[in-house]
């Protein structure tokens, strides 16, 4: 996801414009002169200005060049692995209620560990133990009502 400053700057200009435009369409508040529109419009304007400056390369000289770690260029889909963590969180969001915490967390840790290149010898015990410890700590000690789902905890 390394993008040029032109692209990110343009995205910011677009976002700022969108914020200012949709902000300006917010209805005013009866009995108040300053409504909900003022602040988003101000920020939208600021974002557009910053975006334009970034796209034009102003202030680039201050930047410390990022040390780019060489990603071993295996397959084209290798880069997509970065999306595994957010995908796992999304999975947790939808699966926690029906499957229950223990099963969801088991799958989450297992997939996460394999995606990081762990062997089954490490990944499976980790995926078995970590959810149990987390469940014990949160459910028993901190009284967080973790969803039970298909598989309840032994305690």
């Amino acid at each position: 996801m390394q993008l040029s400053d032109r692209v990110t700057g343009a995205v910011l200009v677009g976002l700022g414009g969108l914020a200012a435009w949709s902000g300006s369409r917010l209805p005013g508040v009866p009995g108040q002169d300053v409504g909900p529109a003022a602040f988003p419009m101000l920020i939208g304007g600021g974002l557009m200005l910053c975006g334009a400056m970034i796209a034009l390369g102003i202030g680039h000289s201050f930047e410390v060049p990022e040390e780019e770690e060489a990603v071993p260029g295996r397959s084209r889909f290798y880069g997509l692995r970065v999306l595994v963590p957010p995908a796992l969180l999304l999975f947790y969001m939808f699966a926690a209620e029906p499957l229950g915490f223990l099963l969801t967390a088991f799958l989450m840790v297992l997939v996460g560990a394999f995606a990081l290149g762990a062997r089954a010898r490490l990944a499976v015990p980790l995926a078995l133990v970590a959810p149990l410890i987390v469940h014990l700590a949160f459910y028993k000690l901190l009284r967080v009502p973790l969803p039970e789902g298909l598989l309840g905890a032994p305690w």
Binding site: A105, L110, L116, A123
Partner: peptide, 13 residues
């Protein structure tokens, strides 16, 4: 590979 998945789980919880 053993630390990062647990961190992710803690983030969710």
């Amino acid at each position: 590979a053993s630390i990062m998945p647990v961190i992710l789980l803690l983030c969710a919880v």
